[in-house]
């Protein structure tokens, strides 16, 4: 990330607030060392926050520094603590053992700390993964609900299933119509149709055979974006057959028979 993006991310404002994690603080510090403009930005933000917080101080007079000095018993000239002269005891075997033990202990402590930091960052990662998985489960659950709903519809006793076969213009195409007569609904499974070229849409027709009278049931607008390619349309007609044609966007008044992709007749005795 370059320094401009870094500044624009808003991380520096949180840095001044102390709202970041220890690792992030160290990262910002490193960026400040590397990029003078990052450092300058931090100084400006800090000045703004110092100004803002200072404006909430409504006292007429502040507490003089001397009162704190008194409490600490500092004198004006007190710049350094008096150095303490260390007393050197005679080294004994016992003290060496003591030091050795201390070093081992310290090393153990450092190791434990490193382990702890490591575990902490692992926990962070696992947490993020868990969130992602939750999201996936949620997604999968809603997909499953949709699939179950569909399955329930298809299993309804009175549903009429009509297979549509490929026609001259596209012999490999196929489709299925599930007609729920009592609810005046048709469900179309269009998995077996090719993606329509740009500017074209599929239009679904209900047909009477003698004489041949097509009635449009509707246009499939969102064919490409729909993932399961299952659509539902209203059908109040006494259909004897169903056909699907390729039409210019928006659909046509009557079917373009040269572009008839699939056709299927409703079994005469449902």
């Amino acid at each position: 990330m370059d320094s401009k993006e870094y500044i624009a991310s808003g991380i520096l404002e949180l840095y001044v607030a102390g709202a970041l994690s220890e690792q992030e603080n160290e990262q910002v510090h490193a960026m400040m060392q590397q990029y003078p403009e990052v450092k300058q930005e931090v100084l400006s933000i800090e000045a703004a926050i110092v100004g803002l917080t200072a404006a909430t101080d409504h006292r007429k007079t502040t507490i003089p520094f001397s009162s704190i000095q008194e409490k600490l018993q500092l004198s004006e000239n007190d710049t350094k603590e008096t150095p303490v002269i260390p007393i050197k005891p005679k080294p004994s075997l016992f003290s060496y053992v003591g030091w050795a033990a201390a070093i081992v202990f310290a090393a153990g402590l450092v190791f434990t700390m490193m382990l702890k930091n490591d575990v902490e960052s692992q926990i962070e990662i696992v947490r993020a993964e868990r969130e992602a998985l939750k999201e996936q489960i949620y997604q999968a659950n809603s997909d499953l609900t949709a699939a179950n709903e569909l399955l329930n519809v298809l299993r309804t006793k009175d549903i009429i299933s009509v297979p549509l076969g490929g026609q001259a213009v596209s012999p490999d195409s196929y489709a299925k119509v599930y007609w729920d007569k009592s609810a005046n609904n048709v469900y179309l499974d269009l998995q077996g149709l090719p993606v329509p070229p740009p500017g074209k849409v599929y239009q679904v027709w209900s047909l009477k055979l003698d004489p041949l009278t097509p009635t449009s049931l509707g246009v499939i607008e969102d064919f490409t974006t729909d993932t399961d390619k299952v659509f539902d349309l209203q059908n109040v007609n006494e259909s004897e057959a169903f056909g699907i044609t390729l039409e210019p966007a928006g659909g046509s008044e009557s079917p373009t028979m040269e572009q008839l992709y699939t056709l299927g007749v409703v079994a005469s005795n449902p």
Partner: peptide
């Protein structure tokens, strides 16, 4: 390094802000 003068300067710089936040 326990320099009282430096301490005073920092106090003057920040005591209003710190008071405001505390209050």
């Amino acid at each position: 390094n326990k320099d009282a003068k430096a301490f005073e300067s920092l106090y003057e710089m920040y005591n209003e802000s710190i008071f405001g936040v505390i209050n």
